[in-house]
Design a protein around this nucleic acid. Structure first.
Lengths: 360, 360
DNA sequence: TTGTATGCGTTATCAG
DNA sequence: CTGATAACGCATACAA
């Protein structure tokens, strides 16, 4: 700045004024300054600005693991909205490790980030850290899950409702022996999904077999193990609701290893409806979560807070959408409830394979 | 710092000295300072440090799109080694848009990042921007691809060799009509893969049908289109080498739509070997790229530069690994070359389906 | 309308 | 060994 001040024969303060339009500057001078800036390729130091204003244009983004295929779209939604408002992202992977999470969250404060977006790891006292932000009036929005005790802003998906709909669909197809592989129940989204499953069974008057409720991590190998356990029971479940798509892949794999055909011998429904759900064999029926919208919406809310919005904490619930594909069919020999099949091809033993050709 | 200086009855300079161990401080004082720091929960301002030292502990990470399933593992590799050295990541998605890329790259300088990792978009003059970093002695490492005219550090994958091996495998299986769906040839990695394909055909004395070489974007819908085009030709190719897995998914989809069975009617090989390659039907033969290692290696190199390593530019080539799964079989009625099948079940028309059961 | 001066929180130099 | 003190690059209150 000093250099361009000299070049334009003005004071350093004037330069600042034309840059920030913080005072009217005579056109003549103004033009000289602008020209100097252009010709010298001046770029303001984000560091000095941040130090002076005690706030930067950086947003903290704390997620469990970018390698989990659900999160990239969330991050992308965040980045797009942030970019338009010229905010930048510091990305942090916690691996669901409370210590790493706490360390990141507390460290981000030293960067004077303008706001924090976090997909919290399970069962932590991270809420305290987050409240520390609030008391420094740095806004925080939780995404996808909520830490215990968090009363602030959150943008979530209608987990319970989505799970409820998927389960009801399985029930309508005629399944009576339904199992569920839940995610880590310390995570609110996993717990909600299990609730939805339970409610659907209760409403249908189907007793819940405790052994048919398995907890697992949100990944394929863990889902695979749980599925193996379930599928070796007698009588076997005829349908499994996997609480995310990765778990569903593990189930698919387990079924194949045991020589079970899907959907003839076993129906599978997932949660996420990742891009890849279309490409599995059979393609996977799954509850779609709007990941990109999750991130985008959360960021819009966060930036409203950054802009000074002072209203009561908001809890936004985004709707899910059950994507019916080919991994679900009636259990062998069962005619599905009429409601699902009115006007369609007469339900017979051949229904399952007929459906499989129906869509890709 | 002033506060803890007062609390500990020392000067602010001394505080700095005990924090940075930049001078020996008498144990007594030292302990008082440490105690004050602890009790007041002092955290240094990363901003002020950066301003003063004219360098931060942030790394710029510029990628095309985190939503492309190959990149998250790269980013994760970067983050892990950066984290250990307590460097943080500013993540930027360019969408392969040269303007957005240039804007990000130039803006990152204002943050005084310690180094820059970039997966460059195609055909830009971004190399000039990058050299600007070099002349400010901020190290830059290119990952996965290299912009035209870049002579600096780069960590890449043996693209040509990987493509060569995959193609040779197809040839060994007996294919004579091989098509390729290349990525955007403006990207060095796409161009290299095509070279590998070409070399394999040349060595085998198979003429390259110009129509059998299609260029496409690195995504499924674009790959799907190209595949449709190829598969409607007469005579059809019996094998398609897709230059990444997303393209291969598109090919798979196209084949199904046209009623072609894979691998009986069409063999498909991909490049990436994403986690999901195991779950498609049939599972996808693909050239594995060590994405995590790509990121980790690049970051190690970058941090060496940050630490002052002054040697000549390095170009690291990471090896690929052909993962043979079930999407490749001999073309109908062909006995594959003996080399691949010695000691195995006698090759017959039933080979393909026999192989399909063999692995998941 | 323009210039001057101060401080943001550190590090680093240098004198005691 | 310790304490002043001067930058780092910018924004802003205030004086001119």
């Amino acid at each position: 700045m000093r250099q361009i001040a000299e070049r334009a024969n003005v004071s350093i303060g004037t330069v600042s004024h034309v840059i920030n339009e913080t005072a009217a500057v005579r056109p003549k001078l103004r033009e000289r300054v602008l020209e100097a800036i252009r010709s010298m390729g001046y770029q303001p130091s984000a560091l000095a600005q941040g130090l002076r204003k005690n706030r930067t244009n950086m947003l903290g983004m704390v997620i469990p693991d970018i390698t989990n295929p659900f999160f990239p779209s969330v991050v992308r939604g965040v980045e797009d909205v942030a970019y338009k408002r010229s905010f930048r992202l510091i990305l942090c992977n916690t691996d669901n490790d409370p210590l790493k999470e706490a360390s990141y969250v507390s460290e981000l404060r030293t960067y004077r980030i303008a706001g924090l977006l976090i997909i919290p790891a399970g069962s932590t006292d991270i809420a305290d850290h987050l409240r520390a932000y609030a008391s420094a009036s740095v806004p925080v929005v939780c995404i996808d899950r909520v830490p215990t005790g968090w009363k602030g802003d959150a943008v979530l998906v209608a987990n319970a409702q989505g799970a409820y709909e998927a389960t009801r669909y399985l029930i309508q197809m005629g399944h009576k022996r339904l199992a569920v592989i839940a995610g880590p129940l310390g995570l609110t989204n996993a717990a909600e999904r299990l609730k939805g499953f339970t409610r659907a069974l209760n409403e249908a008057g189907i007793a819940i077999e405790p052994e048919f409720v398995q907890e697992s991590k949100f990944d394929a190998v863990s889902g695979h193990q749980a599925a193996l356990y379930l599928l070796r029971m007698l009588p076997r479940p005829t349908a499994i609701f996997a609480c995310n798509d990765l778990i569903a892949y593990g189930v698919l794999q387990a079924a194949r290893e045991l020589g079970l055909r899907c959907p003839e011998d076993l129906s599978i429904a997932g949660f996420d409806s990742l891009e890849f759900a279309k490409f599995t064999d059979p393609s996977l029926t799954s509850v779609y979560q709007p990941g990109y919208q999750l991130g985008a919406t959360a960021t819009r809310l966060l930036l409203q807070r950054v802009d000074g919005l002072r209203s009561a904490p908001k809890k936004v619930l985004l709707p899910t959408d059950l994507k019916k594909r080919n991994s679900v069919a009636p259990p062998s020999g069962v005619v599905p409830a009429a409601i699902e099949w009115t006007g369609k091809k007469k339900a017979t033993g051949g229904v399952a394979s007929a459906r499989r050709k129906q869509q890709f």
